[in-house]
Design a binder for these strands. Structure first.
Ligand SMILES: [Mn+2]
Ligand SMILES: [Mn+2]
Ligand SMILES: [Zn+2]
Ligand SMILES: [Zn+2]
Lengths: 151, 151
DNA sequence: CTATTAAACGAGAATAGTTCTCCAAAAGTC
DNA sequence: GACTTTTGGAGAACTATTCTCGTTTAATAG
């Protein structure tokens, strides 16, 4: 199970936004609550659909702008660093990935470089696993270098 | 290291395409060779750029059509099942994912449900890891069910 | 090798996801 | 409450991808 999706009270939200450097608006508050109430890794469209129940006049542009504001503030993340464009995998062997979050480079890591992943308990609710892989996110040597310089 | 990216000879390619139910065209052959020569998980645009050296008149549409043909035939895969649309992560705790490749549902798996992932060797070339997560791909209970029926 | 049929190509229109621009409205500040 | 800054809404613009259609190329049969 997961930490319960508790909706923070108004003044707690004010504090969260203040600390994030975001002014407090009605739309932003409703969006924030929606995103944290949906534990389903929602798309902007899905958030829009839900929030329109509460604010029918909200625009999709506002949803996108606030998602970006939340991401920039580190309040949420994106599930995959590779939304946006298709990336092809021609290595059909079991293997893992090193992903540079800055330049989006993806480098293979052989299956045999890792101890096998072991589950402590059964997977929930009859999920049928085809394959798994481990994704290491960070900075490649080149980007780490550039990052040190511009400190 | 990895299996060397050997370019298969012409008649080998003919066989591969035949077995995949794909007719043999010049564009398709050059595209196939490009994709398997690039171990960098290329985007369609990157493949296009490379292939235009050899076939300047090739169209981006042809690149997309053949990528899809290769994917449908199981010759290549896509790196992420979530290109296409942004998906938000509001759970900032370390955790892992169960991803249904059919309905794209993403379910969290707590960090503590897994034995810690251990590397056998050092990571290559100074990659700086921020975090890692394991992605289990397969079919959720609902989709597995539907899949059994329509057999 | 040629005729016939089926599949693929190139060009460009269409669509989906996302960002940008601009002005009016709301929030933050004193 | 007046002034300044940020945000929201509407729609244009942009990027990634798919679709449509007429022409070309490949597969198949004679
Ligand atoms: Mn790979
Ligand atoms: Mn998650
Ligand atoms: Zn990098
Ligand atoms: Zn599913």
């Amino acid at each position: 199970m997961q930490t319960a999706p508790v909706t923070p009270p108004m003044d707690e939200l004010r504090r969260i936004f203040r600390e994030a450097g975001l002014s407090f608006t009605h739309q932003r508050m409703v969006l924030y609550r929606a995103v944290f109430a949906m534990r389903s890794h929602p798309s902007p469209e899905a958030i829009y659909d839900r929030v329109r129940n509460e604010i029918p006049s909200i625009s999709l542009g506002t949803v996108y702008k606030n998602i970006r504001a939340f991401m920039d503030a580190g309040l949420v993340r994106e599930v995959s660093p590779h939304h946006g464009s298709l990336r092809l995998e021609s290595n059909l062997d079991e293997h893992h990935h090193l992903v540079c979050t800055r330049c989006k480079t993806i480098v293979d890591l052989e299956e045999s470089d890792l101890e096998p992943v072991r589950l402590k308990r059964q997977l929930p609710g009859g999920f049928r696993v085809d394959r798994y892989s481990v994704e290491f996110r960070g900075l490649c040597a080149a980007c780490a270098e550039r990052s040190n310089h511009s400190d």
